[in-house]
Write a protein that binds this DNA or RNA. Structure first.
Lengths: 212, 212
DNA sequence: CATAATTTTGACCATATGGTTAAACCAATT
DNA sequence: AATTGGTTTAACCATATGGTCAAAATTATG
């Protein structure tokens, strides 16, 4: 594989990533990818046989970068639960803010073809799926026992947390329109605040009943 | 318009609704809609000139049924804030459970073509958009002043609430796979619980600092 | 420098898809 | 029964799209 090879390949991957993320699988056109990469359509097929093969690679790249953020935080045994959550919320919202279409893209694709998409995801998560959460559950339950946090089901808590982080990005056009008169800057500011607000919200919700 | 007219038209609308919701605009095929309606493709065009016109009508129908659930609850001045939220959470999760693809559909389309989709939505919401939330803000702020609930920005609260209701449905395949080993029944049970858990979670989060 | 190997391109193909049309069908009216 | 008006269909059209191929351009190799 020559230098030029890697270069063109990278150009294609880059263009494909943009187009697929913007338009989704059905909306994306091989021609548009070729144009955006500044080359002939046949060349795209020369490097990646078919649209589907190209898409798979893109999806896995995107998801592979997106997924570990969850795992790394939940896995760290040392950190107290509430710190874990704080760290998670901050890094997740930052990640999404910098890659604003990733969340919609993943959601879009998993709803388009759940079976296939789950297969791709499994190749990345492997068997680790359950482990991530088991670790979190353990340390959460311990904290509950020590009455550091109020009793709560770990799944509900995780989903509450992820929901509050992810939804504003997925539903951004809608939310921005409905609640911010479509004012971009106002919404950006809102997102910046949100990191702290969400943490505070969860923190308050988890305050044990007998604390002051 | 004859009886038969209304019947075929309804059949088309019904089929189109199913197909569009399952596949989204790009994924949907006029032929598939015709098949599902049990008729010729040309007939679909005879009733609704183009795919786009048909789609618009479907989207507006779907959104029109989906949207008021927000407004009605937030508008009611009498109800105490926490009751409003409880009512909202219950009715929203029920609505989504019964129309499981609606949320994904709306999200999908608004990300596909925000401009156009917002236009369609505006035809339904009219100028009422702001009003809904203004009413909620007023009664929330009053409750805060009376120290019935802890201080919180009304937008953050609304988005927190909607996030926690909607996200599990939008991300269902992913969540079900990651946290429930793809077990359908387990996830359904989880959703049933969730109505109460979310209400309780918000309730705890909004408990004023000085209450026991 | 000549030859081989690889990369890139323009032209092309088969198929799918949204959309049209003319004719067939059918129900009501005279 | 014939006419009329709307409904439904089969066949068709133009275009878009994923994909292929042979030739040209470029690069590596002797």
């Amino acid at each position: 594989m020559s230098e030029k090879d890697q270069n063109t390949e990278a150009q294609i991957l880059n263009a494909a990533r943009n187009v697929f993320i913007r338009k989704g699988y059905h909306g994306a056109r091989m021609q548009e990818i070729a144009n955006e990469a500044g080359m002939n359509k046949a060349l795209v097929h020369y490097y990646f046989r078919s649209k589907e093969k190209l898409f798979r690679q893109i999806f896995m790249d995107v998801f592979a970068r997106f997924f570990p953020a969850i795992g790394n935080v939940l896995t760290n045994e040392e950190m107290p639960v509430m710190k874990k959550i704080e760290f998670f919320v901050h890094s997740y919202i930052d990640l999404l803010a910098e890659n604003s279409f990733i969340a919609s893209f993943i959601i879009m694709e998993i709803n388009r073809d759940p079976e296939e998409t789950l297969n791709l995801m499994q190749e990345i998560t492997g068997d680790m799926r359950g482990q991530y959460f088991a670790g979190f559950k353990a340390s959460l339950d311990k904290a509950i026992e020590n009455e550091e946090v109020a009793p709560v089901d770990f799944r509900q808590l995780i989903i509450n947390t992820i929901s509050m982080c992810v939804f504003p990005f997925i539903g951004r056009p809608l939310v921005q329109f409905m609640m911010f008169n479509n004012d971009n800057d106002a919404f950006e500011a809102f997102l910046e605040n949100r990191k702290h607000e969400v943490v505070q919200f969860i923190n308050a919700a988890l305050k044990p009943a007998n604390s002051k």
